[in-house]
C-alpha cells in the first residue's frame, strides 16, 4: 500500500482524502459558528466544550493541523511536479475553451485560503493557545466579561471593517476552491462524478452555502456588535 501512495494516483487519492476531512471540519466549524447568531449562551458553551475537551484538544486538533499542513504541502508538491511536466509554455493557450477558471487556478485560490488561515490563526487560534497553554488559563473567563469570553471575543474581531472585507474575500476564494475541489475529490477516489448529478448538485450547494454562511456570520457580527 505504501507503493500506492508514492504513485501519482496515490498522491491524488491522499489529496482527496485530506480534502474530505477538511470539508467535514469546515461543516462542523460552520455549525458551531452559526450558533453565535442565534444564541450567545449556546455558542459560549459549545466553544468552551471544544476548547477544553481532551479528545478535541489533544486528538482532533493535532489531526486537523496535520490535515491542513498535508493538504497545502501536497498541493504545492503536485503543483511543482505539474509545472515540470510542461517546461515550455504555449504561446497561445485557450484554457477557457475546455475547463473552468476554478479548476485551472486551484493553486491561487488555495494560496488565498492559506493567507486567510494565517490571518485567522493570528486572530483566534494563537491567542487561544497563548491563554490556555502558556498562561495556563482554562476557565474560559475573562476579567470584565460576564460568563464565558468566546462570544465577546468573536464580536470584537469583526468590529474592524478591513478585517470583515478580508474575511469576505477569503470566503469567496474558498467558494471558488470548493466549486472544483468537492467534485474533484470524489473523482480522485474513483467516484463517477459524471453520472452522479446529485453529487455534483450537493457539491455546488456546499461550495456556495457554507462560504456564504461564514460571510453572513462575519457581517452579522460587524453590524450587531
Amino acid at each position: 500500500m505504501s507503493g500506492f501512495f508514492k504513485s501519482s494516483i496515490g498522491r491524488k487519492v491522499a489529496m482527496a482524502l485530506s480534502a474530505f476531512f477538511l470539508m467535514f471540519f469546515l461543516l462542523q466549524h460552520f455549525a458551531i459558528n452559526i450558533l453565535s447568531v442565534f444564541s450567545e449562551t449556546t455558542f459560549n458553551e459549545v466553544s468552551h466544550f471544544m476548547g477544553t475537551n481532551f479528545l478535541v484538544q489533544f486528538v482532533l486538533q493535532p489531526v486537523l493541523i496535520f490535515g491542513v499542513v498535508f493538504h497545502f504541502v501536497m498541493g504545492f508538491v503536485l503543483e511543482i511536479k505539474n509545472k515540470n511536466a510542461r517546461q515550455i509554455a504555449y504561446v497561445k493557450n485557450n484554457g477557457a475553451a475546455n475547463s473552468t477558471w476554478m479548476s485551472r487556478n486551484m493553486i491561487y485560490s488555495g494560496l488565498a485560503i492559506l493567507a486567510f488561515i494565517v490571518l485567522h490563526f493570528i486572530d483566534f487560534w494563537f491567542p487561544e493557545i497563548n491563554t490556555k497553554y502558556i498562561q495556563g488559563d482554562w476557565t474560559g473567563m475573562h476579567d470584565g466579561i460576564e460568563g464565558y469570553r468566546y462570544f465577546h471575543e468573536l464580536q470584537e474581531k469583526f468590529v474592524n471593517p478591513i478585517r470583515v472585507v478580508a474575511y469576505v474575500v477569503a470566503f469567496i476564494f474558498l467558494s471558488l476552491h470548493l466549486m472544483h475541489g468537492f467534485a474533484s475529490a470524489f473523482q480522485s477516489v474513483g467516484g463517477s462524478t459524471i453520472r452522479k448529478k446529485r453529487l455534483q448538485s450537493i457539491g455546488k450547494a456546499y461550495s456556495i452555502l457554507i462560504p456564504l454562511g461564514f460571510i453572513f456570520i462575519a457581517l452579522y457580527h460587524h453590524f450587531n456588535h
Binding site: S8, R11, K81, N82, N84, A85, S103, S188
Partner: peptide, 16 residues
C-alpha cells in the same frame, strides 16, 4: 509516472 507526465487535477480539459 516514470515518463514525467503531470498529475490529473480533474479539470476535464482532456475529455473536451
Amino acid at each position: 509516472d516514470l515518463e514525467g507526465f503531470g498529475n490529473c487535477t480533474n479539470t476535464g480539459a482532456c475529455e473536451i
